[in-house]
Design a protein around this nucleic acid. Structure first.
Lengths: 188, 188
DNA sequence: AATCGAATGTGACATAAATCACAATTACAA
DNA sequence: TTGTAATTGTGATTTATGTCACATTCGATT
């Protein structure tokens, strides 16, 4: 399984065997079951996660008790409540399994160590952060420029598998529409 | 004016005089007039910008010719079409002056040099990217959880000055509502 | 196979926001 | 100073989406 982590990193930054050997112990390999929480709102956020297999949802619960999906995290995605992670505060969001999920977990402490001791890893985190930033900006753009129907079509086109793996209610929440509206969009 | 750049960097990462002396020449100091473009859609994006004074808008023009404001860039903000900048492609967005604006400009080449030669600068860029990512995610969250009126109130509270500096049409476009709706929100 | 609960679809209606049209105001250049 | 264009406000109407209610389907468990 370590090979998956190595392949993931080397997809951006080539590593020597020796380097990977030093890097690996900073991560911990963990398995979770469907509905388990990796992060619960209000807790201190000490880890971020690389999804090896399975599916997570990053959720914000508003004052009215409504759930809002900020993102789904699939294989090869990094996820956490990054705002809380980087500032070492309590989570405003929850990270929960939609399916049984396998992850590599990285504590903030080890994140700092890796960044400080391995320029390549700092480079890796920088590139990941840049692409995360760009992905978020694209999502903002789709809210600004697209109707609910268009956002639905974009999502269906970009992640067709998601529609088999995720209940409609969650897809609706991710798209920012009610589940009834989503149901009507899908029959148009 | 270089002191402004130094103060901006040192706000995150302390530098020695010698370090700053080496870093400074990687930036170029530039002045633009109201309505000037720093980036035009379709051009190669070779620079990102730190705003020293003035105000920029990052704009996406959709197929119907409608403008959408992805962000405003004020003093102390970094802005570019980062998607195009990091991948060295053509701009999908434009970056234009709302007011006369003074910036430090950083070419992608120099960005790479700085990152490679100064671990502190790589750290600086990493932290900036992280906070940019988080800011974008918060904006997504406000689209998911808040009505137009609530987004209006949030913006007014967070950046009250913006309402004196920016035409309503642009504020509306940033909030993702029509200018008529914005006008009605502001009188409620 | 039968049963229960969760997920989904759909009709009726309410509400929010877009659009269109035009008036009023402001900013700016000749 | 005047005239022109850009900006803003507001009414009337249309459209998109939310909300509520209920029926249907699907899936897991016994």
């Amino acid at each position: 399984m370590k090979e998956k982590l190595r392949a993931h990193i080397e997809n951006l930054i080539p590593l020597t065997d020796a380097e990977f050997l030093h890097i690996l112990p900073h991560f911990s390999f963990e398995k979770y079951n469907k509905n388990d929480f990796l992060i619960q709102e209000g807790e201190h956020v000490t880890n971020c996660y690389l999804v090896v297999s399975g599916l997570l949802k990053l959720v914000y619960d508003d004052k009215n008790g409504k759930q809002h999906i900020i993102s789904f995290a699939m294989e090869d995605w990094w996820e956490s409540d990054f705002s809380a992670y980087f500032s070492q505060k309590r989570a405003k969001m929850s990270l929960q399994c939609i399916e049984n999920t396998v992850v590599f977990s990285l504590s903030f402490e080890n994140y700092k160590k890796l960044s400080a001791e391995f320029p390549k890893m700092k480079q890796f985190f920088l590139e990941k952060s840049n692409s995360g930033h760009i992905a978020s900006q694209n999502r903002i753009l789709s809210f600004l420029t697209s109707s609910a129907k268009e956002r639905y079509d974009q999502l269906l086109k970009q992640y067709p598998l998601l529609f088999q793996r995720v209940p409609r209610t969650l897809l609706a929440s991710y798209l920012g529409v009610s589940r009834e509206t989503l149901s009507r969009l899908s029959s148009q």
